[in-house]
Amino acid sequence: MNSLVLSTVTRLLAPLLLVFSVFVLLRGHNEPGGGFIGGLLAAIAFILINKAEGTRTARRALRILPLTLASIGLSCSIAAGLWGLLSGGAFLQGIWPLIDIQPDGSKSGIAAGSILLFDIGVYLVVIGSVTGIYLALEDGIARSMD
């Protein structure tokens, strides 16, 4: 598609979508949100770039191959599971290394741990697989039109 309006708006919207996707990813910790929705939002950013500028630019914007991104994400999630197994006793158990529990039961520190790692893994898998499928479909359509 060759539209000045779309490509100008995309230049504004794509970074916004990416930042928002990270926000949704982190928000999913205790509120609606999470890795899956965040990943979809990020994928939308790349799909928008693809619509405005073509698959080549979208691939360049992603920097690494979608499949590689997905497999890094999968590794993150497996690692989060093993982390729980190795230090907590059960596979996928939540581990909070940065949280201290005071004697009176209140907690202090940053709520980041194996569950966040798992969610980041999901986020990466979703970005990688959705953009991967989408770009492959776009390539296929472009080839069949030639």
Binding site: V130, I133, A136, L137, G140, I141, S144
Partner: peptide
């Protein structure tokens, strides 16, 4: 659904 759609497209072409 995404996979099957891609498969349908491929089968058609």
């Amino acid at each position: 659904f995404a996979f099957t759609l891609a498969l349908a497209l491929r089968a058609y072409s």
